[in-house]
């Protein structure tokens, strides 16, 4: 989600400055990680043969290597699948080094849950491993439309060094509605959703452990960003909640999370935002004024609220005024 660069830098800077004095390595960023590559990046076991890497609740920055989204790994008898490639090649390679410690099986698939840079900027590292890249049927179109903008815009945000080698690598295996991926004795159920977070949201359910990789259809702790359809997202909440999952790995937030309780915080936020905006629209309040107050009651409950709430409100206002 692009926001204007100066603000991004400021916000990214704050995250670092706050911890800076006490925990200097935060600000050493890439160098520190490179020195401890693999060792510094520990995979969290989520269920039998299922692992995740927890992203930071921050904006992508040079200091965090772009590692803000949760990444996943599922290991079958023959092969492994990775869910999302991370926000830079540095992050992707560190992730690969970390999971090579838990499995020697080849990565057969990389599943991209949607188009955003924190989930796809590491794709080239997995192409190099020979993985088939899998995405929603709308993902190639979305990457084509936005890819050049992402490459240009994020260079400003995370710096030349971290952008090195980053390419927009589109999926070659597309999911229309549903698709099963066989890892040998282990089946992943992929599902393409209607426009919600974006118009190319894809989720992964590991049938064996009932672990649900929700991608950015689920945000916890970090404020959700809206780049698709608020009404679409809300209307698919019940369908998401009804999935037969024991736990979830959200796109952002704690790993693992209880299911379907993991949906509650974002549902509350979206309902508050929609309620405030509908009231403003009915009362004839102009967009510029309405977005300043809509959803404010949620401010204390989320990281990155000030970075994204007004932007979400702007997009949601434009959508809801057509109701």
């Amino acid at each position: 989600m692009p926001i204007d660069p100066l603000r991004r830098k400021l916000l990214g800077g704050f995250a670092c400055a706050g911890a800076g004095a006490a925990i200097l390595p935060c600000c050493l960023g890439r160098a520190a990680l490179a020195a401890s590559e693999g060792a510094g990046m520990a995979l969290k076991p989520v269920a039998d043969g299922v692992y995740a890497l927890r992203g930071a609740d921050e904006l992508m920055s040079e200091a965090n290597d772009g590692a803000i989204a949760n990444l996943g790994l599922v290991v079958g008898d023959e092969a492994a699948a990775v869910i999302d490639s991370g926000g830079s090649l540095v992050e992707a390679r560190a992730f690969i080094a970390a999971f090579e410690k838990v499995t020697a099986r080849p990565v057969r698939y990389l599943v991209n849950t949607h188009m955003h840079p924190d989930h796809v900027f590491g794709n080239a590292a997995f192409r190099a491993l020979g993985a088939t890249i899998v995405g929603h049927r709308n993902l190639p179109r979305a990457l084509e439309a936005r890819g050049a903008f992402y490459l240009q815009n994020f260079r400003e945000q995370i710096g030349d060094a971290l952008m090195k080698g980053v390419e927009i690598v589109p999926p070659t295996l597309l999911v229309d509605e549903r698709l099963e991926l066989d890892l040998g004795g282990r089946v992943l159920e992929l599902r393409a959703w209607k426009p919600a977070h974006t118009d190319n949201d894809l989720t992964v359910l590991d049938r064996a452990t009932r672990t649900f990789f929700a991608g950015d259809l689920v945000f916890m702790d970090s404020l959700p960003t809206l780049d698709g359809s608020l009404l679409g997202w809300l209307s698919q909440m019940d369908g998401l909640a009804a999935l037969d999952a024991a736990r979830a790995v959200p796109g952002h937030g704690p790993v693992p999370a209880d299911w379907p309780a993991a949906l509650q915080p974002e549902r509350r936020y979206f309902e508050a935002l929609a309620r405030d905006l509908r009231k403003a629209i009915a009362g004839g309040v102009p967009m510029a004024e309405a977005v300043k107050t809509a959803g404010r009651g949620e401010r204390d409950k989320w990281a990155l609220f000030d970075a994204y709430n007004e932007r979400n409100a702007t997009a949601a206002f434009a959508e809801l005024e057509w109701e």
């Binding site: 100066l6 709308n138 815009n153 426009p195 118009d199």
Partner: peptide, 17 residues
Amino acid sequence: VKASGGCSAPAVKNMDE
């Protein structure tokens, strides 16, 4: 106004719609 990318960022969030 401080803004960036308003023309190059595809505005359409939901192309089919």
